[in-house]
């Protein structure tokens, strides 16, 4: 496996998250929200890097910490994004957050997609519902490196039309001429 960058977590203090601020909250569906975050420490934010598909540990101190895929592409340097479905204690607290609120993050963690091995090939990305979060990061990475790959196809489904996330992105993918975007709903 290629080297996984760990910028963002201090090796000496792997358990300690870094304070971050909620820049923006986007209501994706009735029970999914996307949060755009930036570390409060500016130099950390500048050096922060991750690979498409990696995850982060998002804390609302007091409620707890949980793992979420980073849903923004590595090329997005202004902020990083998590998309969260409201289900339990931590995600409920996350859904209470508003722009300006403080959270804490340990990231990046986990593995990436072996995108280097895919170079020159046609790629089909298939995702559904909130499962689209890491794939959004991946797909946007692929778009950023469009020339390295052959055909790009994205197949995205959700339970109902109201459960489709990333509507703005979907519209752009739909409009994009060099990608094939297919959506479907279960019902």
């Amino acid at each position: 496996m290629s080297t996984i960058p760990r910028e963002g977590i201090k090796a000496s203090e792997p358990l300690r998250p870094e304070p971050a601020t909620v820049l923006d909250v986007i209501t994706e569906t009735p029970n999914i929200k996307s949060l755009r975050l930036a570390f409060d420490d500016e130099s950390l934010m500048q050096s922060f890097s991750f690979l498409q598909g990696q995850v982060g540990q998002l804390s609302v101190p007091g409620a707890g910490e949980a793992t979420f895929a980073i849903a923004s592409p590595p090329s997005q340097r202004e902020y990083f994004q998590f998309s969260v479905m409201k289900t339990g204690v931590v995600t409920t607290a996350i859904h209470e957050l508003r722009a300006g609120d403080r959270v804490a993050v340990r990231a990046p963690m986990g593995n990436t997609f072996p995108t280097d091995d895919w170079k020159g090939r046609n790629i089909v990305v298939i995702g559904g519902g909130i499962g689209m979060a890491p794939l959004r990061s991946l797909f946007m990475y692929l778009e950023d490196h469009r020339d390295d790959y052959g055909g790009l196809q994205l197949i995205y489904g959700a339970r109902t039309p109201k459960d489709v996330c990333y509507l703005d992105d979907c519209r752009q993918w739909e409009a994009g001429s060099d990608i094939d975007f297919v959506t479907s709903v279960d019902t």
Partner: peptide
């Protein structure tokens, strides 16, 4: 593992993460 504390500044919330 560490302590944390919230405080209010002028119309914004602050979060401090204590010693690891």
């Amino acid at each position: 593992l560490f302590s944390f504390s919230y405080s209010m500044a002028v119309d914004c919330e602050r979060l401090e993460i204590g010693d690891a």
